[in-house]
């Protein structure tokens, strides 16, 4: 059996062992269901609450994807500008550092206030995009400035125009970095969407976070955990899709990094 398969099976086995221990613990110690429901109860809630959870999961997923697209457009454009102009780099660096060191989730109340509670959906997308922005900007900029130095010399030698250098060398070289940034940004976008919904907390957006909040308020802990399971699956799915994209990019562009 290959090493990769052994690793995958070990991971799966660990999850199965954890769930089994949890189930046995719940049956033996019988904690109150509002405190710790068993995995089988969570499974049942997944099915029973699916008419509510599935549309909410769809909404949160859609908002995270919209946020990721927005962050990609803004982050990549900013990184391209920063890689081409010293002035732009000087102007963007403090903003990027600020984005990196500030817990951006803390601006959620402000964002909701500015955008308006009646447009909470937009606030969710904007906050998620703001959080996903830094990893995308940072990874793309690293990629744009990491092209092979000898290839850079070759482009210098042949008097390449900045646009040629960007399109023929730096952008293709930065693609694997960009996809890596997308993977990190995707996780962040889901966090952003959830936090914004928590802060909005009015039911104006009926995404997964709101379902989780509502289930918590009503002590329907199994449904709360079922909502969490949906969030985890969503993150996993985005990660898988972007992982496949990363492999495809590396293959197509013959890059090892």
């Amino acid at each position: 059996m290959s090493r990769a398969w052994t690793e995958r099976l070990s991971g799966l086995l660990a999850v199965v062992v954890l769930l089994a221990a949890w189930e046995i613990g719940c049956r033996v110690m019988a904690p109150p269901a509002y405190l710790l429901p068993s995995p089988s109860a969570v499974g049942a809630a997944l099915i029973e609450a699916s008419p509510r959870l599935v549309p909410s999961a769809g909404q949160t997923f859609l908002q995270a994807v919209q946020a990721l697209l927005l962050a990609t457009v803004v982050g990549v454009s900013a990184a391209v500008s920063a890689s081409m102009h010293t002035t732009a780099r000087g102007a963007l660096r403090p903003i990027a550092t600020l984005l990196q060191v500030t817990p951006v989730v803390a601006i959620a109340p402000l964002l909701i206030l500015w955008v308006g509670l009646d447009r909470a959906d937009l606030s969710v997308v904007l906050l998620a995009a703001t959080i996903a922005l830094f990893p995308l900007f940072s990874a793309t900029l690293t990629g744009l400035t990491s092209a092979d130095p000898d290839l850079e010399r070759l482009f210098d030698l042949h008097g390449a125009r900045p646009l040629d250098r960007l399109l023929r060398l730096r952008l293709p070289s930065s693609l694997p970095f960009m996809v890596e940034g997308l993977r990190i940004g995707a996780g962040q976008a889901i966090v952003g969407a959830v936090v914004a919904e928590f802060v909005a907390g009015t039911g104006a957006t009926q995404g997964l976070a709101w379902r989780i909040l509502e289930a918590g308020n009503r002590l329907r802990t199994a449904e709360l955990l079922a909502g969490l399971a949906w969030l985890a699956m969503m993150g996993l799915m985005l990660n898988l899709v972007l992982g496949a994209l990363e492999s495809a990019v590396r293959r197509r562009f013959g890059l090892t990094r």
């Binding site: 092979d148 010399r153 070759l154 040629d164 293709p172």
Partner: peptide, 22 residues
């Protein structure tokens, strides 16, 4: 250069035509 320093995503003819296109 010391290593071939070819664009890994471009075929041989695209790599060789690069200086002319630039």
């Amino acid at each position: 250069f010391q290593s071939p320093t070819l664009l890994p995503w471009a075929d041989a003819v695209s790599n060789v035509s690069l200086p002319l296109e630039l």
